[in-house]
Design a protein around this nucleic acid. Structure first.
Lengths: 213, 213
DNA sequence: GCCTGTGAAGGATTTCACAGCC
DNA sequence: GGCTGTGAAATCCTTCACAGGC
């Protein structure tokens, strides 16, 4: 498997996997890049090119076997195993994350949650008892953790992320509304609804005319 | 102002605006593209090129006036006004969205929330009383709505989005884990933590070696 | 006849590099 | 001397178009 696969390609693979899972649930045996592209609003050529980075999974004249391609993508993305996840920051947002039912079925197992607020420490959130953030470093030495979800206030995010990275965590999902810095060997993704909305208002403004004088 | 500004450029502007707001809060008067780039991990040339689509806001030898550039970006993005937002789907996730304190200070005013579950209708969430989704069309005829936040289960998302679009909503923030289809004049953004995590596991897998035999 | 896999072409985006101004 | 604004160059990404297999 060659080494330099564009990041944009990687970022599309989970969408392909999700669409294939839906097709599989519907009982579809086979899908063409055309049909998959319509589901995802991606051109068929792009799907074929993306997949070609990893191998040859289709059959000319037929398309792709749904189960087989799904299994391949799950293997490529590492979705065929469990990942250990912690949540740092268990305010309203963090609690919603811990209780969100969408992670576990996808193999993301939340193993612990931490907060700096003494009033929260010890509190039970779903299956998880909130720990003090003072225990974070010790916990990371003791327990393997693959992904850290950061849901602390913006001003605290960089420090928390630095501690996670120093302890060997190599993937960060950042909900804090701030641009955090990580070394090049650490993956980071940002979840930021306000930023997403602010890029849409640009288009709304164009549409509504610049009547505001 | 020329018409075709790349979408990637638009998507970076809110990040610039946020960094400038931070600088302004710190009392900084002036910033160079170099410094701004370090804050955001963007090259200085990219910042200058992006801004050049909209005008000439800097001074050679000095950099950009923080307040002035921030004001310009807020104007360009339409952040200098209030936007009316509704939330459809007020389960755990939707409730967290309605109660999230980060929207209002940025000018995103949540004016109503809707759910299909009779057990939720009438319930008070923060400032908002949950309405039946049956009232949605009527509400949209009566009240102006700029942005619809969709937090319903995946299988219901497309139908909800179609109704919003039919009623004239031109921006959708979709929290449902599905690819939704909208006409080209409607802006849509997806918030999907699972998809974000699944693109990071690809990198984790590489790192941890393919020891799993 | 249909649909994949893929070089080659085309298009979009980023970076370079420097003239021009403070 | 420092830093912007911007054409030109370089790079990256997408789409085309078709050979080849089913």
């Amino acid at each position: 498997m060659p080494l330099e696969i564009p990041e944009v390609v990687i970022n599309r693979l989970p969408l392909y996997a999700r669409a294939l899972a839906e097709l599989a649930a519907r009982g579809e045996q086979v899908v063409s890049s055309q049909t998959l592209g319509e589901m995802l609003e991606v051109t068929p050529a792009q799907i074929r090119k993306d997949l070609s980075y990893f191998g040859r999974f289709g059959k000319q004249g037929r398309g792709y076997n749904v189960q087989l391609l799904l299994a391949k993508l799950r293997e490529i993305l590492g979705l065929d195993r469990q990942w250990r996840v912690i949540v740092v920051g268990v305010g309203r947002l963090g609690q919603a994350i811990v209780e969100y039912g969408g992670f576990e079925p996808q193999g993301f197992h939340i193993v612990a949650a931490f907060d700096a607020d003494p009033a929260l420490v010890g509190k039970q959130v779903g299956r998880i008892r909130i720990r003090s953030v003072d225990e974070l470093d010790e916990f990371l030495r003791r327990e393997p953790v693959d992904i850290g979800i950061v849901a602390v206030p913006a001003r605290a995010a960089q420090e928390v992320i630095d501690r996670l990275v120093a302890a060997g965590v190599r993937a960060i999902l950042n909900y804090a509304p701030t641009t955090a810095h990580v070394p090049p060997d650490v993956a980071i993704r940002h979840i930021d609804p306000v930023i997403a909305m602010q890029s849409m208002t640009y288009h709304l403004k164009l549409r509504q005319g610049t009547s505001a004088k």
